[in-house]
């Protein structure tokens, strides 16, 4: 009994937006406990590192150390928030809270659900980078100008990329504790060896190509270029790397998690 009237289910944009909106509402429900830490964390980190180490480290890559480190933090914060959202967050929504059972009964398909998830993690990346930027500007570590204001967009890219990677990891995880391997085996090394804490040039030559494989390396380069308004053509390669990695990883993540959700 097909109906004669066409069935006007929501458009693709609306389906993605409704997934995003669901996460937005949950996140902003506890605005103080969710929204304040992104502003405080960079302060603690910079105070700890800056006060203690800046005496010994004068310059890195021709930048005062505090500026070198601070600009790196702009994207690591986006990386970590997106990674948490799409590993522990996604797993809990899927296995414990059964949130997706409800959402997938509404007129959205599993691709819409997972892309919405990635876009939301990108948004959190944007916001977390913005929070760090506010602090860096407030304490005079970075000047505020049109160029530094672009850094949250790099935060968005970082968030989207690490959301995709994390969803792919989630598709393999059977027990929530297995995420510990992902965080201490993959994300923490990346934090230290992607040119955030010290330049990649300081690594032994054999290890440098490894750092080039780390996705974070490329977003760090982009964000520093944006912060100091120093652009060159090799940044296009970094951008391309991020784009290609994100697309490929997101594709496989959606395939694999999709098969878990729609059996």
């Amino acid at each position: 009994m097909r109906t004669n009237k066409p069935i006007l289910y929501p458009s693709l944009f609306n389906r993605l937006y409704s997934v995003w909106y669901r996460h937005f509402r949950i996140y902003t429900k506890n605005l103080v406990s969710n929204g304040l830490p992104p502003f405080l964390e960079p302060l603690i980190f910079l105070a700890g590192m800056g006060l203690g180490l800046s005496k010994f480290l004068v310059e890195m890559d021709h930048l005062p150390y505090i500026q070198f480190l601070a600009t790196g933090l702009l994207v690591t914060t986006a990386m970590f928030t997106a990674a948490f959202e799409c590993s522990f967050g996604t797993f809990i929504r899927m296995e414990f809270d059964k949130v997706y059972d409800g959402m997938l009964a509404a007129p959205i398909n599993v691709r819409n659900l997972l892309i919405g998830e990635i876009l939301w993690a990108g948004t959190k990346g944007f916001f977390f980078t913005f929070a760090v930027l506010c602090m860096l500007t407030l304490f005079g570590i970075l000047p505020l100008n049109g160029s530094t204001l672009l850094s949250p967009f790099v935060g968005f890219l970082t968030g989207v990329m690490f959301a995709s990677i994390s969803l792919l990891i989630t598709s393999f995880v059977k027990d929530i504790n297995q995420f510990n391997f992902y965080f201490s085996g993959f994300l923490s090394p990346m934090f230290f060896f992607s040119g955030v804490v010290f330049p990649i040039g300081n690594l032994p030559p054999v290890l440098r190509p490894v750092a080039e494989i780390f996705p974070l390396t490329h977003t760090v380069r982009l964000v520093r270029a944006v912060c100091f308004f120093k652009f060159n053509y090799s940044l296009l390669l970094d951008f391309l790397f991020i784009l290609v990695i994100t697309l490929i990883v997101a594709y496989f993540a959606i395939q694999r998690l999709g098969r878990k959700l729609v059996t």
Partner: peptide
């Protein structure tokens, strides 16, 4: 109300 509001968005 908020729970239901979120779901009303899914149906536009």
């Amino acid at each position: 109300m908020q729970n239901l509001d979120i779901y009303s968005r899914f149906y536009q």
